[in-house]
Amino acid sequence: MSILKLPKTGAPAPEFTTLNQNEETVSLKDFRGKKVILYFYPKAMTPGCTTQACGLRDSKAELEKRNTVALGISPDAPKRLVKFIDKESLNFDLLSDEDHSIADKYGVWGLKKFMGREYDGIHRITFIIDEEGKLAHVMDKVKTKSHHDDVLAVLDSL
């Protein structure tokens, strides 16, 4: 496995501007004043990614109590993201990173192995960004089933 070069906690979160599922422009700076759960996932509508997204969907009220928004980001095109949102009734934005330039900035694009095959792709990593746009926490061991609870626990510990 390749060693990922993740940005360090305490550093400014890498800025980005991209399209959401509705092909609207979204920038990280749009969320100043709120905490952001920026989670990278490999592919919309796959089992693990669906479990992870639905956990955050069901935790929206808890996240709002903590002044926090969730943003999912993958290499999927906006058209696929809108299908994922519609199918699973997701209540937060999914962002398109088709050229994986944002994944590169965050150090989550790299060599992966699956069933004996090696390929480049997104590693499932979550960044918690504070109200000023600094990286408050990096979750590099993400379990899709408990991701939402793990995120809430981290938010409560900050």
Rank of each mutant, 00 (worst) to 15 (best):
I3K: 13
I3H: 05
L6N: 10
G10C: 15
G10M: 13
A11I: 02
P14N: 06
P14A: 07
F16N: 04
T17A: 12
Q21N: 01
N22Q: 11
N22C: 00
E24T: 06
V26C: 02
S27I: 02
D30W: 04
F31G: 02
R32D: 04
K34T: 02
K34R: 07
K35T: 07
V36D: 03
V36S: 03
V36A: 05
L38Y: 10
L38S: 07
L38Q: 05
P42D: 00
K43V: 03
A44M: 02
P47A: 09
P47C: 06
G48S: 06
C49E: 03
T50V: 11
T50R: 09
T51N: 09
Q52A: 12
C54L: 14
L56E: 06
D58H: 14
A61P: 12
L63E: 07
L63R: 08
V69T: 05
G72H: 00
I73S: 00
P75N: 00
A77D: 10
P78W: 01
K79L: 06
R80Y: 09
L81Y: 01
F84C: 03
F84K: 05
F84P: 05
F84H: 07
I85H: 07
I85Y: 04
D86L: 06
K87N: 12
E88F: 12
L90R: 10
N91W: 15
F92P: 11
D93V: 00
D93M: 13
L95N: 05
D97R: 02
D97I: 04
I102D: 10
A103R: 13
D104Y: 12
K105G: 04
K105V: 02
Y106F: 15
Y106S: 06
W109V: 05
G110C: 13
L111T: 05
L111H: 03
L111E: 13
L111C: 04
K112T: 01
K112A: 03
K113R: 11
K113T: 13
G116T: 05
G116C: 03
R117V: 10
Y119V: 00
D120S: 09
I122Q: 13
I122G: 00
I122N: 13
R124Q: 14
I125W: 12
I125T: 14
I125R: 13
F127P: 04
F127R: 08
I129E: 12
D130K: 09
D130T: 08
E131K: 15
E131Q: 12
E132T: 15
A136S: 14
H137Y: 15
H137D: 11
V138L: 07
M139A: 09
D140N: 15
V142N: 09
V142K: 10
V142L: 07
K143M: 08
T144A: 14
S146H: 05
S146E: 11
H147W: 11
D149T: 13
D150R: 08
A153I: 07
A153T: 15
V154F: 05
L155W: 10
L155I: 15
S157P: 08
L158W: 07
L158A: 04
